[in-house]
Design a protein around this nucleic acid. Structure first.
Lengths: 119, 119
DNA sequence: CCGCATCCGAAACGATACTG
DNA sequence: CAGTATCGTTTCGGATGCGG
C-alpha cells in the first residue's frame, strides 16, 4: 500500500495516513459547524446574520472562524457589497457544492435515525 | 416550521435547532477520529491495537474516548475475550453499519478531490 | 498486550461588549 | 450590518505511568 502522500507525489491519497494533507481537509469538513454552514448555503447565498440565525447557538466569533477556514480552502466565496449598511454574502463555490452532497447525507442520516439511538 | 424537538414529541428532527438531540449526535459523528474509526471497522472487527495502527497518529487516550462514546451511542460493540493475553474486539453494530455509508462518502470525497484544493 | 488514570499545555468554545 | 477584542471556561490532545 502506498499511503505516503505527504509530498504530493502520489495521486492516490489516504485519509488514514497521518502525514497526508487529506487529514487537514477531513478535519475541516468533519466538523459540526462546517457541515451545518455548507448545508445552509445549499439553497443559495446568505449573509452573515442570516447564517448566524440558521446555525442556532453559534457565536459570531466561531461563525467567523468557520467561514474563514472554509473560504481559505476554496469551499465558499465571500462577496462584499460596499453599501450602507454593509452587505456581505457567502455562497458555495463549485467545490462547496460538490462536498455538500456527502455532508447532506450525513445530516439527513442523523435526522432520520435519531429515534433509533438509545442514549 | 416545527423545529422544536427537544422534548422528543416531534418525529421530525432538525440538526439546525440548537436544542435538538440531533446536535449531539452530529457532533459525535462529524469528527475526524469517529469518521476514521467507523470506516476502519467496515471490513470487520478489529482490536484496540489494530485500530490504533490504522488511525495513524491517534493516542491511546483519544482512541479510548472515541470508542467509548461511539459504544455508548450504540454505533459499535465491544467484545471482551478474557484470555491471556487479554483480547478485546470492536465491531460495528447495525446502526454503525448504517452510518458508515454517509461517512464513507465523506472520506472518499476528500481522497478524490484533494487535488482540487488550493491550500 | 489492553486500556485506564493523571497531569498538563494548547486549542476551541461561548458570552459579551465594542468598532468600522 | 458585519465582524473584532477580550475574557473565562471547556475540551482536546500528547506524554507518561500503572493495573488487569
Amino acid at each position: 500500500m502506498t499511503t505516503l502522500c505527504a509530498t504530493g507525489k502520489h495521486d492516490h491519497h489516504d485519509v488514514y495516513a497521518a502525514q497526508c494533507p487529506c487529514r487537514e481537509v477531513l478535519d475541516l469538513l468533519a466538523n459540526k459547524w462546517a457541515a451545518l454552514a455548507i448545508g445552509a448555503l445549499e439553497d443559495g447565498p446568505l449573509r452573515f446574520g442570516e447564517l448566524q440565525r440558521r446555525l442556532q447557538g453559534i457565536s459570531p466569533k466561531v461563525l467567523t472562524a468557520t467561514l474563514r477556514r472554509l473560504e481559505e480552502n476554496g469551499f465558499l466565496h465571500r462577496e462584499i457589497y460596499p453599501a450602507v449598511p454593509l452587505h456581505v454574502e457567502y455562497s458555495l463555490t463549485e467545490l462547496g457544492v460538490s462536498v455538500s452532497v456527502p455532508l447532506s447525507g450525513l445530516r439527513t442520516w442523523v435526522e432520520l435515525n435519531l429515534d433509533k439511538l438509545t442514549a
